[in-house]
Simulated scan of single mutants.
Amino acid sequence: MSAKTKLALLDNRPRRRAAQLTQSLRLGVALLGAVYFGYYYWLLHRILLGEAISPEEMVRADGGFQLVEGVQFVIVLLAFLAFALWLYRAYQNVHRLPQTDPAHSESMAGWSWVIPLLNLWYPYLILQEIGHYFSRFTNSAMAHTPRWKALLLSWCILHIGIFILGPVVRSMAKLPVDNLAALHRFALVILLDQALIMASAVVTLAILKTMVPLEHNVAATHAALRATSELSESTTKGIE
């Protein structure tokens, strides 16, 4: 039995479920944010057109803006951590499969999220490798299907788009409240940000759903391989 075959695969189901749950929450909060920020944009648009808006209505809008933004920050952070932990565990299992030669160390699946510039495309490369080796190990064509390739490319583009737009949103958030035209543009940028977050959550959920049967088959195939190898070793020792 090879050294890799002796290692049992790590159970990634709890992490995958956590990633699916938090991505669903991320999608829901982004949808709520899009509705609310759309309302905020509409209010500012009315003011710019010369329509009178009561101070109480603007105060409520500003308060709601801060609340939605705060809740979304927490959910997005949890979704990021859950997905990163799932990715790290999945890449650990790639390293435990026989006849694999991953391009990166296990720890790179974690570091790839925090190293500047590398974090733009390295998680995408890690995802590619996971799909490739899991498919090869189970004799599946999943990693070579147009759908899988489109999902990964879409995920990467959205990931980069959100990463680039984030600093723009944070800088525009410091605009003076009396600059209505600038706030109007800011609300529009936030709506774009919400659209990217929603699209990213949908694509991430599709990736995780695609991985469910593949991870199951990898675990089952590897367990059967270990059992066969152990039985073969026991038989050989018995003969000796």
Rank of each mutant, 00 (worst) to 15 (best):
S2T: 14
K6C: 07
L7W: 11
L10Y: 14
R17H: 12
R17S: 10
A19G: 00
Q20H: 09
L21T: 13
R26F: 13
L27F: 12
G28D: 08
G28W: 08
V29F: 12
V29H: 06
L32Q: 05
Y41M: 12
L43P: 01
L43Y: 08
H45P: 03
H45K: 11
R46A: 12
R46G: 09
I47D: 02
L49Q: 11
I53A: 09
P55E: 07
P55T: 05
E56Y: 10
M58F: 11
V59D: 15
V59I: 14
R60Q: 10
R60Y: 12
D62C: 09
G63F: 09
G64M: 01
G64S: 05
L67I: 13
L67D: 04
V68F: 01
G70K: 04
F73N: 12
A79E: 05
F80R: 11
F80D: 08
L81T: 11
F83H: 10
A84V: 08
A84S: 13
A84G: 11
L85V: 09
A90H: 00
Y91G: 00
H95R: 06
R96W: 05
R96T: 03
Q99I: 01
T100F: 08
D101F: 13
P102C: 03
A103V: 04
S105C: 08
E106G: 02
S107C: 05
S107K: 12
S107G: 15
S107E: 12
S107Y: 13
A109I: 00
W111Q: 07
W113C: 01
V114P: 00
I115D: 05
L118C: 07
L120P: 04
I126F: 06
I130F: 03
I130S: 01
I130K: 02
G131D: 02
Y133F: 13
F134G: 06
S140L: 04
P146W: 04
P146H: 02
R147G: 08
W148Y: 14
K149W: 10
A150V: 01
L151C: 02
L152I: 01
W155I: 06
I157T: 08
L158N: 00
L158K: 05
I160N: 04
P167H: 09
P167W: 07
R170Y: 09
S171Q: 15
L175Q: 09
V177Y: 14
H184M: 11
V189Y: 13
I190Y: 11
Q194V: 05
A195H: 01
M198A: 15
A199W: 04
V202W: 04
V203H: 02
A206H: 06
T210N: 10
V212Y: 10
E215I: 00
V218N: 02
A219K: 06
A219Q: 11
A220H: 01
A223W: 02
T228H: 13
E230P: 02
S232E: 15
E233A: 15
T235L: 15
T236K: 13
